[in-house]
Write a protein that binds this DNA or RNA. Structure first.
Length: 424
RNA sequence: GGAGAGGUGGCCGAGCUGGCUGAAGGCAGCUGCCUGCUAAGCAGUUGAUGGGGUUAAACUCAUCCCCGGGUUCGAAUCCCGGCCUCUCCGCCA
């Protein structure tokens, strides 16, 4: 959420940002409502001030045993007017807030202006694309060959977009989770958290999934809860509504969680295999930091995520998203895409974003820089470190052998009881 | 799920037979003073949001005692709904 005062004094900046992001919002309508709101406030507060004076007078008269009925009758009328104006004010504010929730964050000046995925700019590549002296297979074929990737039964139990992992492949999944958490907690300075997977509507609003992306969320009927699409929601909202004390930033937390996404409207795209599913596991990193430091923190967050792929020796590229591909709440975002030779495509396994104070404002998360200082909105960031199914797919495809085995990356072997390959 | 109790400022804790109570008292914090040092003591001070105002402050007005409604000239105080916490019972990994 943007600061209403900022919108008031920089309407053109906000309009341009929305246009570059491909969002339609009526800023002028918001400004008009804001004007109306301030007019009402001026009037209603004047009346309340009058009432406060009269009320004290009534109290005094009564104490002295004098008659106050005339004044009381007068105040009754005044109070009616006040409550009428209060209603109107409340309605106006509700309307403004509702509209503010639909105003996207402003892209950072370093973000390239563009429309689609094609306008994203590659920052760097890491690792060698391996050459194979046999016909490389996509991960779903390898998964079937070595056993353990069971998509049909997932579909049978839960519908399309769900799958089972079994045996050593399930072990690979668990090894990856443990490895990533160990890396981030032991070497990157994050503290580990176990988090709620079901969250309330206010948390979803806080990080920006609601209202705009509501259709993509699984909702629990009857309880008003949502299944998290990412651990970001629980982690970033952890101190929502609070004022963090001096010295408490930066706060760096990571967590493993399942992620649930309806993927509404994306059928037909990338549906083979396990690169687009309704439920997957992910290790997520979240930072809450002082505003001046947030862009440095974004770079180190990105490095933390890259380390995962480097340790696994998987080639990847990093791209900075253009304005049109940037998500609603983000000011800047890097995607990390791992190369999958079987599919001959780059799979997004991490998004590292800086939201500046957009989320903090929505969830009223504040920070007091020094004792006695005014609270400010901290900046929030998050990045996947990294998403599992696509990483598993990339391992299967990059580490496959001619005779249909998969060589386990050395880093993971200690996590798999020393096992060095999967397959017959 | 059933039965009770409760949610007040950074913390503890009064007020809750409605009226200078944004809120006593205490602790913590800050600023002076004082005392060889420390401790103690004395005086003062310390919340948030929004409107107006200012280059910025100062200043000023309104609102805020879990949240949302209601009663009333006036509510932290009374009434209704919700959320959360605690205790006991039931259930359960």
């Amino acid at each position: 959420m943007l600061d209403l005062k900022f919108i008031r004094s920089n309407p053109d900046t906000v309009k341009l940002a929305a246009r570059n992001k491909g969002e339609k919002v009526d800023i002028d309508k918001i400004l008009e409502l804001d004007k109306k709101r301030r007019d009402i406030i001026g009037e209603v507060e004047k009346l309340k001030s009058e009432r406060n004076v009269a009320t004290a007078e009534i109290a005094r008269l009564k104490k002295e045993g004098k008659d106050a009925s005339g004044l009381i009758a007068e105040m009754k009328k005044l109070s009616d007017r006040i409550s009428g104006l209060d209603d109107e004010l409340r309605e106006t504010e509700t309307e403004i807030n509702e509209k503010l929730l639909w105003v996207p964050n402003i892209p950072h000046e370093s973000v390239p202006v563009g429309k689609t995925d094609d306008d994203n700019v590659e920052i760097r590549k890491w690792g060698e694309l391996k050459s194979f002296d046999f016909k490389v297979r996509p991960h779903w074929e390898i998964g079937e060959m070595i056993g353990g990737l069971d998509i049909p039964h997932g579909a049978g139990v839960s519908g399309s977009g769900f799958y089972f992992l079994a045996g050593p492949l399930a072990g690979l999944e668990r090894a990856l989770i443990n490895f990533m958490l160990d890396l981030h907690t032991r070497e990157h300075g994050y503290s580990e958290a176990c988090i709620p997977y079901l969250v309330g509507e206010s948390a979803m609003r806080g990080t920006g999934q609601i209202p705009k992306l509501k259709e993509d969320m699984y909702q629990i009927e009857g309880d008003g809860l949502y299944l998290i699409p990412t651990a970001e929601v629980s982690l970033t909202n952890i101190n929502a509504g609070e004022i963090l004390p001096p010295g408490s930033l930066p706060k760096k937390i990571c967590a493993f969680s399942p992620c649930f996404r309806r993927e509404a409207g994306s059928y037909g795209k990338e549906t083979r295999g396990i690169v687009r599913v309704h439920q997957f596991h992910k290790v997520e990193m979240v930072k809450i930091v002082e505003p001046e430091t947030s862009y440095n923190e974004l770079e180190s967050l990105l490095e933390n995520a890259e380390r995962v792929l480097q340790s696994l020796d998987l080639p990847y590229r990093v791209r900075v998203l253009c304005t049109g591909d940037l998500s609603f709440a983000a000011a800047k975002c890097y995607d990390i895409e791992v190369y999958a030779p079987g599919m001959d495509s780059w799979l997004e396994v991490s998004s590292c974003s800086n939201f500046e104070d957009f989320q903090a404002r929505r969830m009223n998360l504040r920070y007091r820089p020094d004792k006695g200082a005014k609270p400010i909105f901290p900046h929030t960031l998050n990045g996947s470190g990294v998403a599992l199914p696509r990483t598993v797919a990339a391992i299967l495809e990059n580490c496959q052998t001619k005779d249909g085995q998969v060589v386990i990356p050395e880093t993971l072997r200690p996590y798999m009881g020393g096992m060095d390959r999967i397959g017959k």
